[in-house]
Simulated scan of single mutants.
Amino acid sequence: MSNSQLLRALSEALEDPQALLAVILDSEDREAAMAALQERYGWDEVQAMTVLDMQFRRATRADRDLIMQEFERAQD
């Protein structure tokens, strides 16, 4: 899995953090949350795990901007 693919999943997740959190909170357990994220966003298991493992501090505007910048650089 490339760093670009992981950054893409993080940037997609942070486009609407409230929706992401709703998916996680509505899930019975970690496995259900991973499956729900994969279904909703079309991610693979590694991408879903990366998003689940993300710390809440990464959802600040400054960190979201950094993730988007890294993702854009990885696309070049």
Rank of each mutant, 00 (worst) to 15 (best):
M1Q: 11
S2K: 14
S2P: 04
S4E: 14
S4R: 12
S4A: 15
Q5D: 10
Q5S: 15
Q5W: 02
L6C: 05
L10P: 01
L10D: 00
E12I: 12
E12W: 12
A13M: 09
A13T: 08
E15S: 14
E15T: 08
D16K: 12
D16N: 15
D16Y: 04
P17A: 07
A19G: 04
A19H: 11
A19T: 14
L21N: 12
A22M: 08
A22I: 05
A22S: 12
V23A: 02
V23M: 03
V23K: 02
V23T: 14
I24N: 06
I24M: 06
D26E: 11
D26C: 06
S27G: 06
S27T: 03
S27R: 02
E28G: 03
D29F: 06
D29G: 11
D29I: 08
D29E: 10
D29W: 02
R30N: 04
E31T: 04
E31W: 00
E31R: 05
E31S: 02
A32P: 00
A32G: 13
A33M: 03
M34S: 07
M34H: 03
A35V: 10
A35W: 01
A36K: 08
L37C: 08
L37W: 00
L37S: 07
Q38Y: 01
Q38R: 14
E39W: 01
Y41S: 10
Y41I: 01
D44F: 08
E45G: 07
E45C: 00
E45M: 06
V46M: 12
V46E: 15
V46R: 13
V46H: 07
A48I: 03
A48K: 05
A48Q: 02
A48G: 01
M49S: 13
T50S: 15
V51F: 02
V51S: 08
V51A: 09
L52F: 05
D53W: 04
D53E: 15
Q55R: 15
Q55N: 13
Q55M: 10
Q55D: 15
F56Q: 09
R58N: 12
A59D: 04
A59Y: 05
A59F: 09
A59Q: 14
T60W: 05
T60S: 15
T60E: 13
R61H: 04
R61D: 11
R61W: 01
A62S: 10
A62R: 13
R64Q: 11
D65K: 09
L66M: 11
L66E: 15
L66R: 14
I67T: 13
I67R: 03
M68V: 15
M68F: 02
Q69Y: 09
E70A: 10
E70I: 01
E70S: 10
F71R: 06
F71G: 01
E72V: 06
A74I: 05
A74V: 04
Q75L: 14
D76E: 15
